[in-house]
Write a protein that binds this DNA or RNA. Structure first.
Length: 239
DNA sequence: AAGGGTAACAACCGCCGGACT
DNA sequence: GAGTCCGGCGGTTGTTACCCT
Protein backbone atom coordinates (compact mmCIF):
# COMPACT_ATOMS: atom_id res chain seq x y z
CA UNK A 1 0.00 0.00 0.00
CA UNK A 2 1.38 3.34 -1.04
CA UNK A 3 1.29 5.96 1.63
CA UNK A 4 -0.04 9.29 0.48
CA UNK A 5 2.41 12.11 1.10
CA UNK A 6 1.32 14.58 3.74
CA UNK A 7 -0.77 17.29 2.16
CA UNK A 8 -1.11 20.56 3.93
CA UNK A 9 -4.50 22.23 4.17
CA UNK A 10 -5.74 25.59 5.30
CA UNK A 11 -4.43 29.05 4.68
CA UNK A 12 -1.52 29.57 2.36
CA UNK A 13 1.64 31.10 3.73
CA UNK A 14 3.56 33.80 1.93
CA UNK A 15 6.37 31.35 1.32
CA UNK A 16 4.00 28.91 -0.36
CA UNK A 17 2.57 31.68 -2.50
CA UNK A 18 6.06 32.63 -3.62
CA UNK A 19 6.95 29.07 -4.47
CA UNK A 20 3.84 28.63 -6.56
CA UNK A 21 4.23 31.93 -8.37
CA UNK A 22 7.89 31.32 -9.02
CA UNK A 23 7.23 27.85 -10.37
CA UNK A 24 4.40 28.88 -12.68
CA UNK A 25 6.35 31.91 -13.77
CA UNK A 26 9.20 29.73 -14.84
CA UNK A 27 7.54 26.59 -16.15
CA UNK A 28 3.95 27.54 -16.77
CA UNK A 29 1.02 25.33 -15.93
CA UNK A 30 1.48 21.83 -17.24
CA UNK A 31 -0.15 19.46 -14.73
CA UNK A 32 -1.73 20.66 -11.52
CA UNK A 33 -1.36 17.30 -9.82
CA UNK A 34 2.36 16.99 -10.52
CA UNK A 35 3.30 20.62 -10.11
CA UNK A 36 3.19 20.84 -6.32
CA UNK A 37 5.85 18.16 -5.99
CA UNK A 38 8.20 19.90 -8.38
CA UNK A 39 7.47 23.27 -6.84
CA UNK A 40 8.31 21.98 -3.38
CA UNK A 41 4.78 22.39 -2.09
CA UNK A 42 2.98 19.96 0.16
CA UNK A 43 -0.36 20.83 -1.34
CA UNK A 44 -2.83 19.04 -3.55
CA UNK A 45 -3.01 20.05 -7.18
CA UNK A 46 -6.52 21.28 -6.61
CA UNK A 47 -5.41 23.49 -3.79
CA UNK A 48 -2.64 24.97 -5.93
CA UNK A 49 -4.97 25.54 -8.83
CA UNK A 50 -7.51 27.26 -6.63
CA UNK A 51 -4.91 29.45 -5.00
CA UNK A 52 -3.52 30.49 -8.36
CA UNK A 53 -6.84 31.05 -10.09
CA UNK A 54 -8.52 32.89 -7.27
CA UNK A 55 -5.70 34.78 -5.68
CA UNK A 56 -2.26 34.73 -7.23
CA UNK A 57 -2.95 35.30 -10.90
CA UNK A 58 -1.45 38.65 -11.85
CA UNK A 59 -4.48 40.35 -13.33
CA UNK A 60 -7.21 39.73 -10.84
CA UNK A 61 -8.98 42.42 -8.93
CA UNK A 62 -10.44 41.84 -5.51
CA UNK A 63 -12.80 43.71 -3.27
CA UNK A 64 -14.51 47.05 -3.96
CA UNK A 65 -17.02 46.00 -6.56
CA UNK A 66 -18.17 49.04 -8.48
CA UNK A 67 -21.81 49.96 -8.88
CA UNK A 68 -21.61 48.85 -12.51
CA UNK A 69 -20.19 45.51 -11.53
CA UNK A 70 -22.90 45.03 -8.95
CA UNK A 71 -25.60 45.74 -11.48
CA UNK A 72 -23.95 43.40 -13.95
CA UNK A 73 -23.82 40.59 -11.43
CA UNK A 74 -27.44 41.10 -10.46
CA UNK A 75 -28.47 41.12 -14.09
CA UNK A 76 -26.39 38.06 -14.94
CA UNK A 77 -27.68 36.18 -11.94
CA UNK A 78 -31.19 36.80 -13.17
CA UNK A 79 -30.41 35.57 -16.65
CA UNK A 80 -27.79 32.87 -16.00
CA UNK A 81 -28.60 31.68 -12.50
CA UNK A 82 -25.69 30.60 -10.32
CA UNK A 83 -23.29 30.06 -13.18
CA UNK A 84 -20.43 31.89 -11.53
CA UNK A 85 -17.80 30.98 -14.06
CA UNK A 86 -19.98 32.31 -16.87
CA UNK A 87 -20.41 35.52 -14.94
CA UNK A 88 -16.68 35.76 -14.34
CA UNK A 89 -16.13 35.50 -18.08
CA UNK A 90 -18.21 38.65 -18.48
CA UNK A 91 -16.52 40.50 -15.63
CA UNK A 92 -12.87 40.99 -16.49
CA UNK A 93 -10.43 40.57 -13.62
CA UNK A 94 -13.01 39.04 -11.31
CA UNK A 95 -12.92 35.39 -10.28
CA UNK A 96 -15.93 33.13 -10.06
CA UNK A 97 -15.20 32.58 -6.39
CA UNK A 98 -15.14 36.31 -5.74
CA UNK A 99 -18.41 36.84 -7.56
CA UNK A 100 -20.00 33.93 -5.76
CA UNK A 101 -18.87 35.20 -2.37
CA UNK A 102 -20.00 38.72 -3.14
CA UNK A 103 -23.40 37.53 -4.27
CA UNK A 104 -23.91 35.25 -1.28
CA UNK A 105 -22.71 37.72 1.31
CA UNK A 106 -24.15 40.97 -0.02
CA UNK A 107 -26.07 41.09 -3.26
CA UNK A 108 -28.49 38.28 -2.55
CA UNK A 109 -29.76 40.02 0.54
CA UNK A 110 -29.89 43.35 -1.23
CA UNK A 111 -31.91 41.92 -4.07
CA UNK A 112 -34.34 40.32 -1.64
CA UNK A 113 -34.75 43.62 0.21
CA UNK A 114 -35.20 45.53 -3.05
CA UNK A 115 -37.77 43.06 -4.24
CA UNK A 116 -39.66 43.40 -0.99
CA UNK A 117 -39.43 47.18 -1.19
CA UNK A 118 -40.56 47.30 -4.79
CA UNK A 119 -43.50 45.14 -3.82
CA UNK A 120 -44.51 47.72 -1.23
CA UNK A 121 -42.96 51.10 -1.98
CA UNK A 122 -40.61 51.44 -4.94
CA UNK A 123 -37.94 53.63 -3.39
CA UNK A 124 -34.43 53.67 -4.66
CA UNK A 125 -31.98 51.79 -2.49
CA UNK A 126 -28.59 53.16 -1.85
CA UNK A 127 -25.63 51.07 -2.89
CA UNK A 128 -23.31 49.97 -0.14
CA UNK A 129 -20.37 50.04 -2.47
CA UNK A 130 -17.59 52.30 -1.41
CA UNK A 131 -15.75 54.50 -3.80
CA UNK A 132 -12.57 53.09 -5.25
CA UNK A 133 -10.58 55.40 -3.08
CA UNK A 134 -7.57 53.17 -3.03
CA UNK A 135 -6.72 53.61 -6.70
CA UNK A 136 -4.39 56.40 -5.70
CA UNK A 137 -2.86 54.15 -3.11
CA UNK A 138 -2.13 51.54 -5.72
CA UNK A 139 -0.49 54.17 -7.85
CA UNK A 140 1.73 55.15 -4.96
CA UNK A 141 2.75 51.55 -4.48
CA UNK A 142 3.54 51.27 -8.14
CA UNK A 143 5.81 54.24 -7.82
CA UNK A 144 8.28 52.02 -6.05
CA UNK A 145 8.65 49.97 -9.16
CA UNK A 146 8.68 52.91 -11.48
CA UNK A 147 11.57 54.34 -9.52
CA UNK A 148 13.56 51.20 -10.03
CA UNK A 149 16.29 51.05 -12.61
CA UNK A 150 15.95 47.32 -12.90
CA UNK A 151 15.24 46.10 -16.42
CA UNK A 152 11.72 44.84 -16.65
CA UNK A 153 10.49 46.70 -13.64
CA UNK A 154 8.88 49.44 -15.69
CA UNK A 155 6.95 46.86 -17.64
CA UNK A 156 5.92 45.28 -14.39
CA UNK A 157 4.64 48.54 -13.00
CA UNK A 158 2.93 49.69 -16.16
CA UNK A 159 1.08 46.45 -16.64
CA UNK A 160 0.17 46.38 -13.01
CA UNK A 161 -1.16 49.89 -13.29
CA UNK A 162 -3.19 49.05 -16.37
CA UNK A 163 -4.70 45.92 -14.96
CA UNK A 164 -5.15 46.90 -11.35
CA UNK A 165 -2.85 44.11 -10.37
CA UNK A 166 -2.97 45.31 -6.84
CA UNK A 167 -6.24 44.54 -5.15
CA UNK A 168 -8.05 47.67 -4.24
CA UNK A 169 -9.47 46.51 -0.94
CA UNK A 170 -9.86 48.91 1.93
CA UNK A 171 -6.93 47.33 3.73
CA UNK A 172 -4.60 48.62 1.07
CA UNK A 173 -4.59 52.22 2.10
CA UNK A 174 -1.13 53.67 2.26
CA UNK A 175 -2.27 56.43 4.52
CA UNK A 176 -0.20 54.91 7.26
CA UNK A 177 2.85 52.71 7.35
CA UNK A 178 1.10 49.75 8.91
CA UNK A 179 -1.41 49.47 6.15
CA UNK A 180 1.24 50.00 3.59
CA UNK A 181 3.54 47.30 4.88
CA UNK A 182 0.63 44.96 5.33
CA UNK A 183 -0.39 45.55 1.76
CA UNK A 184 3.10 44.89 0.62
CA UNK A 185 3.33 41.76 2.71
CA UNK A 186 0.04 40.39 1.60
CA UNK A 187 -0.05 41.29 -2.03
CA UNK A 188 3.43 41.76 -3.35
CA UNK A 189 5.68 38.93 -4.30
CA UNK A 190 8.59 40.95 -5.40
CA UNK A 191 10.62 40.41 -8.47
CA UNK A 192 13.70 40.02 -6.36
CA UNK A 193 12.28 37.27 -4.27
CA UNK A 194 11.21 35.36 -7.32
CA UNK A 195 14.63 35.83 -8.81
CA UNK A 196 16.24 34.62 -5.62
CA UNK A 197 14.04 31.56 -5.60
CA UNK A 198 14.81 30.77 -9.20
CA UNK A 199 18.51 30.99 -8.59
CA UNK A 200 18.36 28.29 -5.98
CA UNK A 201 19.56 24.81 -6.95
CA UNK A 202 16.88 22.56 -8.37
CA UNK A 203 15.01 20.97 -5.54
CA UNK A 204 14.11 17.82 -7.45
CA UNK A 205 16.91 15.67 -8.68
CA UNK A 206 16.66 14.68 -12.30
CA UNK A 207 14.19 17.42 -13.06
CA UNK A 208 13.86 17.57 -16.81
CA UNK A 209 13.41 21.28 -17.33
CA UNK A 210 13.38 20.94 -21.07
CA UNK A 211 10.57 18.41 -21.01
CA UNK A 212 8.59 20.49 -18.59
CA UNK A 213 9.10 23.53 -20.74
CA UNK A 214 7.86 21.66 -23.79
CA UNK A 215 4.90 20.33 -21.88
CA UNK A 216 4.16 23.84 -20.81
CA UNK A 217 4.23 25.09 -24.37
CA UNK A 218 1.94 22.29 -25.49
CA UNK A 219 -0.37 23.14 -22.68
CA UNK A 220 -0.36 26.74 -23.80
CA UNK A 221 -1.30 25.89 -27.34
CA UNK A 222 -4.15 23.70 -26.18
CA UNK A 223 -5.45 25.88 -23.44
CA UNK A 224 -4.83 29.35 -24.73
CA UNK A 225 -8.38 30.35 -24.01
CA UNK A 226 -7.75 29.88 -20.31
CA UNK A 227 -4.56 31.85 -20.29
CA UNK A 228 -4.54 35.44 -19.33
CA UNK A 229 -2.67 37.83 -21.57
CA UNK A 230 -0.34 38.83 -18.81
CA UNK A 231 1.31 35.47 -18.76
CA UNK A 232 4.08 36.62 -21.05
CA UNK A 233 4.76 39.42 -18.67
CA UNK A 234 5.45 36.91 -15.92
CA UNK A 235 7.34 34.42 -17.98
CA UNK A 236 9.44 36.22 -20.55
CA UNK A 237 11.70 38.28 -18.33
CA UNK A 238 12.72 35.23 -16.37
CA UNK A 239 13.46 32.76 -19.14
C1' DA B 1 -13.40 44.49 28.73
C1' DA B 2 -15.89 40.40 27.38
C1' DG B 3 -18.88 37.71 24.84
C1' DG B 4 -22.10 36.83 21.18
C1' DG B 5 -23.61 37.73 16.52
C1' DT B 6 -22.65 38.75 11.83
C1' DA B 7 -20.17 39.79 7.55
C1' DA B 8 -16.61 38.83 4.48
C1' DC B 9 -13.81 35.84 2.18
C1' DA B 10 -10.41 32.02 1.69
C1' DA B 11 -10.37 27.34 1.05
C1' DC B 12 -12.25 22.61 0.79
C1' DC B 13 -15.26 19.00 -1.03
C1' DG B 14 -17.81 16.34 -4.17
C1' DC B 15 -19.45 15.97 -8.57
C1' DC B 16 -19.25 16.26 -13.52
C1' DG B 17 -17.57 16.39 -18.25
C1' DG B 18 -13.93 16.04 -21.56
C1' DA B 19 -9.71 13.92 -23.09
C1' DC B 20 -7.02 10.12 -23.37
C1' DT B 21 -5.78 5.18 -23.34
C1' DG C 1 -17.20 1.18 -25.10
C1' DA C 2 -15.06 1.23 -20.49
C1' DG C 3 -11.94 2.96 -17.32
C1' DT C 4 -8.93 6.53 -15.69
C1' DC C 5 -7.15 11.02 -15.12
C1' DC C 6 -7.48 15.83 -14.93
C1' DG C 7 -9.45 20.30 -14.65
C1' DG C 8 -13.44 23.08 -13.77
C1' DC C 9 -17.61 24.22 -11.33
C1' DG C 10 -20.86 25.22 -7.64
C1' DG C 11 -22.06 24.45 -2.88
C1' DT C 12 -20.48 24.59 1.57
C1' DT C 13 -17.56 25.21 5.54
C1' DG C 14 -13.97 27.39 8.41
C1' DT C 15 -11.68 31.36 9.91
C1' DT C 16 -11.05 36.02 10.91
C1' DA C 17 -12.37 40.70 11.68
C1' DC C 18 -15.65 43.73 13.09
C1' DC C 19 -19.73 45.46 15.48
C1' DC C 20 -23.01 45.65 19.08
C1' DT C 21 -24.71 44.90 23.64
Amino acid sequence: MVRQPYLKKGSWSRDEDQKLIAYITRYGIWNWNEMPRFAGLQRSGKSCRLRWVNYLRPNIRRGNFSREEEETIIHLQKTLGNRWSAMAARLPQRTDNDIKNYWNSRLKKRVIVENNNSASSPTETKSSVEENSSDADSSMMLGIFLDSDTPGMHDFAEIAADTTFFPSGSNLSVADDDHYSMAMDNYLVSYWEIQSFLEQPQMIEGLDCEAISQNSQQWHSHHQQYYDPLHDFWVNPLI
